[in-house]
Design a protein around this nucleic acid. Structure first.
Length: 565
RNA sequence: UGGGACGUAGGCAAGUGGUUAAGCCACCGGGUUUUGAUCCCGGCAUGCGCAGGUUCGAAUCCUGCCGUCCCAGCCA
């Protein structure tokens, strides 16, 4: 790819490294990456960062990116997760072609590699218990101790390892370990485990194996086998790089370059698979694809466009500093895409009836409303207008402050695309709540403007009461009440900070007729409220469900909050 | 007296010894507007974790210190 138009400034350290390799011909100027998820959960926005880097960099430099499932732990992995991962990567807009691989495809090769290391005298079968192994490992500040089994002969190791594979031993009886250095300052180098016995069947290899390679043993070699040039991963694996390098050097095989970057964190949510799984398991959300979840599936259901997620990731950039992104930045990217692409519709979330006293009973006319002011080609739709309408309860105040320019007794406002109306009377319930607003309209203002050019400050959305289509609207907020729920200490329970109001449901909101034609997955802007996505979820009442993707910016609400109005 | 990494604005992030330290989000002003949306204009680090040093010149080089993160799974 031609990057000459891009100046060097702004290019991140990974791309610079890749370019340096291309310049020196380190990998024959080839670039081949891979995205290596473990199929033990759904993908989230943090994975999307890795995906956009892995696929993005490969594409930019004319290379390829593989999708490889690192399925070395049969106890936690299953096909449902591999399917969801494939769907999510595809939805994000990336294509791995025919290159769908599995670490489990390499089990035989990995076994041969292990035999090789045993023969070289740098791997041995250890027969200590897990507890003993832990004790012998030492601590970060104290060196470990050699296992009494460390000096078994090559012949004995070969025999034992083959019998481990044959199933002659029980789980925990033996493990295969690399023989490196029990006093190494990097704990990962203190004879790490390569194989453990697990008598469970694997989602792809079934019962063919009862010994499974650890991630540390399988990962680097899998990259090598696939001819990966640049193994991008998060900084938590920086400490493991010396081990991966050691394995590759001992084996004398193709040696990819691992490059670590900082993982993504976002305010008001958690991004650890363990916690996400807990939210699902304990019923705080309705599954991995709940629209409040930061999973790809959740964001899809919530209405986040994939291009907005990609744009967000590009803006964030990549570095090695521990970073926490304001959720506002993601929301900005979502609004930007939706503003230019989502059609407008009118829905009243908290309705109050408005009756136009001088509008003939039984009369009906239709107005053509633009579908998207940002895109003329989106055309128009018809909106029926009648004497009785619904408007937003919050758009009326009996005793308004100065800067409130919506409806109030004696005030004139514009009903978007329709007429100017002036409030003449307020009818209340016995408890004082407003039941109905009486207005008069100006026939001269048809279409929403008058020849005299008089100023009308407020413009309200409305729905004809007779034509209203009821829908269920779910207003989604942050999943947590604090900006850094991932930072809750051990003494506290992070679940105490789950936002009990993260989903607020309006079970029967009147919508204009055109809303009735929306199909699940379609994204629209409900005027003056926000962007919403028609959901495939079912409501109790059988009404169509709309999830709020993100609200519109609300300067008025902000002014009120700060007490300026 | 363990090892590895990282500190530039409220949040990200360019900057790789040489004019007034990019840009984005947020925030604060102002203009336009039939969405208090969008859009447009302007503001927002005499300062780069701190302290010394080298240099004509330092966010960039050196020394020391401080802070944060990761590592003691037969998880990934």
């Amino acid at each position: 790819m031609d990057d000459s138009g891009k100046k060097d400034a702004g290019r991140d350290f990974i791309r610079r490294t890749v370019e340096e390799h291309n310049r020196t011909g380190k990998f024959g100027s080839k670039v081949h990456t891979r995205f290596p998820p473990e199929p033990n959960g759904y993908l989230h926005i943090g994975h999307a960062k890795a995906i956009s880097l892995d696929f993005g960099i490969a594409h930019e430099y004319g290379g390829l990116c593989n999708l490889r499932f690192d399925d070395t732990n049969p106890e936690r992995e299953n096909p449902e997760y591999v399917e969801s991962i494939k769907e999510d990567v595809r939805w994000l807009g990336y294509d791995w072609g025919e290159r769908e691989y599995y670490a489990s495809d390499y089990f035989e090769q990995l076994y041969e590699f292990a035999l090789d290391l045993i023969r070289k005298g740098v791997a041995y079968v250890d027969s200590m218990t897990p507890d003993q192994i832990r004790e012998y490992r030492g601590t970060p500040t104290e060196p470990g101790t050699n296992s009494p089994y460390r000096d078994r002969s090559v012949g004995e190791n070969l025999d034992l390892f083959e019998r481990m594979r044959a199933g002659e031993f029980e789980e925990g009886e033996h493990v295969l370990r690399a023989k490196i250095d029990m006093a190494h300052p990097n704990i990962n180098m203190r004879d790490p485990t390569m194989y453990r016995i697990r008598k469970v069947s694997h989602h792809r290899t079934g019962d063919r194996w009862c010994i499974y390679p650890t991630y540390d043993w399988a990962h680097g070699q899998s990259d090598s086998i696939e001819g990966i040039t640049h193994s991008l991963c998060t900084i938590e694996f920086e400490n493991h790089r010396p081990l991966y390098d050691w394995f590759l050097d001992q084996l004398e095989v193709h040696h990819p370059q691992q490059i670590e970057f900082a993982p993504l964190n976002i305010t008001y949510t958690v991004l650890s698979k363990r916690k996400l799984a807990e939210l699902v398991r304990e019923g705080y959300v309705d599954g991995w694809g709940d629209p409040r979840m930061p999973t790809i599936a959740g964001m899809r259901r919530r209405g986040y466009p994939p291009e907005a997620i990609r744009d967000f990731l590009e803006r964030v950039g990549v570095s090695k500093t521990e970073s926490v992104l304001d959720i506002e930045m993601l929301e900005f990217c979502v609004r930007e895409v939706l503003n230019r692409s989502a059609e407008r519709r009118m829905v009243v979330l908290d309705p109050v009836k408005l009756v136009i006293e001088n509008y003939p009973e039984g009369q009906e006319e239709t107005f053509e409303a633009e579908n998207n002011p940002e895109d003329e080609s989106a055309g128009t739709r018809s909106m029926p207008f009648t004497r009785e309408l619904y408007i937003e309860r919050g758009d009326f105040m009996e005793d308004p402050p100065k800067k409130f320019f919506r409806l109030a007794p004696g005030r004139e406002v514009r009903l978007k695309h329709a007429y100017y109306v002036t409030c003449t009377d307020v009818i209340k319930e016995s408890d004082g709540t407003v039941r109905e607003l009486r207005c008069r309209y100006d026939p001269e203002s048809r279409g929403g403007g008058t020849a005299d050019g008089r100023k009308v400050k407020g413009t309200l959305h409305w729905v004809s009461a007779h034509h209203a289509v009821p829908i269920e609207v779910r207003t989604l907020g942050h999943l947590f009440t604090v900006d850094r729920p991932d930072r809750i200490g051990e003494e506290e329970d992070w679940r105490d900070y789950i936002n009990p109001e993260s989903r607020q449901t309006n079970r029967r909101a009147p919508a204009e007729p055109a809303v009735g034609h929306l199909r699940p997955g379609e994204r629209v802007q409900f005027l003056r409220h926000g962007y919403f996505c028609a959901s495939d979820e079912a409501s109790d009442s059988g009404l169509p469900v709309f999830n709020r993707t993100v609200s519109l910016k609300d300067t008025w609400a902000k002014m009120r909050q700060k007490g300026k109005a």
